[in-house]
Amino acid sequence: MSSEASAARAADRMAGVEPVPGVPKPDPILKASGVRRSFGGLTAVDVEHLEVQRGTITALIGPNGAGKSTLFNLLTGFDRVDAGEWSFEGRRLNGLGGHRVARQGMVRTFQLTKALTRLTVLDNMLLAAPGQVGERFFGALYPPAWRRQEAVQRERAMDLLRRFKLDAKKDDLAGSLSGGQRKLLEMARSLMVDPSMVMLDEPMAGVNPALVQSLLGHITALRDEGMTVLFVEHDMDVIMGISDWIVVLAQGRVIAEGRPEDIRSDERVIDAYLGTRHDEPGGDGEAARGAEEEA
């Protein structure tokens, strides 16, 4: 299926969905309500209701300090909420640790790439494969029990590496890759987990422009294979180009959501961006200092 066709199908799915914050989706894979988190009296995230449609690329945008990464951390079990609940594929995720969220099929990447630097590229991939016998302490001591499985995973890993054009680097230490290659590796690695949804935290940050197109291609390819993608990004052009749906966060709240064209013309979004861009340098700083005063 071509990318356009699948984009069109994704758009179809969103047909008739009102562009208002918290609007229900026809077939949500992720549902969150009342999710709140504050740091030292400062509310970082306060999302009343949010649903993510299956099989779409949804972008999460917002000015600095809007709480995008915090929301990511909360949803993926890397931080604890003060209140709220959310479910993935109908299963409640509240209180689950990061690893259990990942096992449910919701895998994330990080804003600052977390390549396992002193492992080879191939080991980075193999590490991510789920359900390995050889990863159990006693299983590990009896190689015949895991050799075959290892060989199968190796094949799968090589396929993915070829797709992300990293196969030539398979025996290099991940730490020797360039920033963009690390982003690719991290994306490839998350696919080893066999997820139904990937959450990409600023996949384009710090990547050289030549690689951006390739990364975008990979993201749309994921959707074309039926995966759901939620990603955080700053670059408006990028977002408008590939997203099926956009959620705008400001001061921890969802202030708007809708198709790219809805967002482009949304007054609140423009206000939010212009309003904070005005004092952006101090944005995070104010928060930290305020929190410090609290402490």
């Binding site: 890397f78 990061g98 690893h99 990942a102 990080f110 390549a115 590490l127 991510a128 789920p130 080893m192």
Partner: peptide
């Protein structure tokens, strides 16, 4: 190398 990364991969 990075325990958060490993956690994010379901371990």
């Amino acid at each position: 190398e990075d325990e958060d990364a490993v956690r994010s991969l379901g371990k």
